[in-house]
Design a protein around this nucleic acid. Sequence first.
DNA 1: ACGATCGCTTTACATTGTCAAGAGGCAGGA
DNA 2: TCCTGCCTCTTGACAATGTAAAGCGATCGT
Lengths: 219, 219
Amino acid sequence: MTETANAAVATTGTSVMDAAQGTGSPGRAALLRALEELAREQGVSNVGLREVARHAGLSHAAPTHFFGSRDGMIRALAFEGLQLLDDELCVAQERDAQLPGRERLVSDAMEFVAFAQRHPAHFDAIFRTPSAAAGDDSLDRARRAALDGLRALVMEVHAAGDISGDVETVFLQLCTLSHGIASLAVDGLLKGFDKVPEGPNVSAEVVERIIRAQVAQLP
Amino acid sequence: MTETANAAVATTGTSVMDAAQGTGSPGRAALLRALEELAREQGVSNVGLREVARHAGLSHAAPTHFFGSRDGMIRALAFEGLQLLDDELCVAQERDAQLPGRERLVSDAMEFVAFAQRHPAHFDAIFRTPSAAAGDDSLDRARRAALDGLRALVMEVHAAGDISGDVETVFLQLCTLSHGIASLAVDGLLKGFDKVPEGPNVSAEVVERIIRAQVAQLP
DNA sequence: ACGATCGCTTTACATTGTCAAGAGGCAGGA
DNA sequence: TCCTGCCTCTTGACAATGTAAAGCGATCGT
């Protein structure tokens, strides 16, 4: 039983996504909440297995029981985060369905950055701890699937004639730009720039200015 | 002597930059080389203090002797990397001095992600391990200084009339886009996209396509 | 010649991640 | 009813880690 625990959970669900929350024993959920809270302050890769257990009020071996290993625990948080990301992006796309095409692109990219700032621990686990996910292709697939929503939106806006140019390149531009903003914002590395006010997290206005400039410039 | 070792080194040099290589005892240099090699495969935050010492053929306490702590060791790698980044960006800017304005922007941004792919351990230490640098404002300042070259270039190109629009926003666009590409490329997260060939590291052509599209669209 | 500093090791200790072996409870079947 | 198995979780142990303190030889300034 090296990592069968989460592997089983990951392949049992109906969709690829509902792996994390699926069958939630109270202990398991408490551990994930503790991990999230600690990782939000220290970064995922700096939280310890036993620290999480202590914070959740359980014995030091509880995490390995549920997740198989420390990496398994982080993977579980990543899956939970992908589910969350998918949900939030879906409701945002619904909400903005009647906006003009380019506005929908702006909104979607902003929503991605907002997700990273709302759930920094999840964001970290999903996109910035690939070492913990090495050899787990299910996470790779889930990660890619979560981005398909944005890809589809780009194609839709392109088909409607609101933008032109190569669809995949536009998609890559939006992905990398959003990821860059989110990463820098979460790490507090955007603080030193002009026009970026200090504060707990980067204001949405700055994010919006960057993304809006980007989208407005699309061919 | 909590962290006086590197703090002393960091404030002794003539410039802010030459902190890492400055006074290099052979042991210290060997440790940094070992750290770089190990971090290039495992990621900075997954390499252990004793592992580095072993790899360098020294006793397990050698790193703390030179760097004060594990975090100090990572900070030292970050400073070394900033020096390196500054150098490489400078020679690139000289080399491209006679190119048209927008080409210089493209080249500079590409040089940044090339740096990240050439020196993933340094890139990681500089921009993606802020927890290790917490409370060390000298690293913050050095990080920002390293980006001033790009900012100056943007201002120059703007002054020459090759681009218009808000300079700081353009600068932020280029920074966040480059950082996003570099981060995803280093973590191997760009592999699953269409148009991105598989391989050890993302080909420069893809990077160029994204950045070139970005720059071409600037107002 | 001699103390001080540099470069590094040895020893020691608290803490971590992981494994094996349970303990207690709840379900279902005989 | 009792037995069996599973599910949740603990206890105990072990190797490995990060950090601190003390020490040891060489080199250097005085």
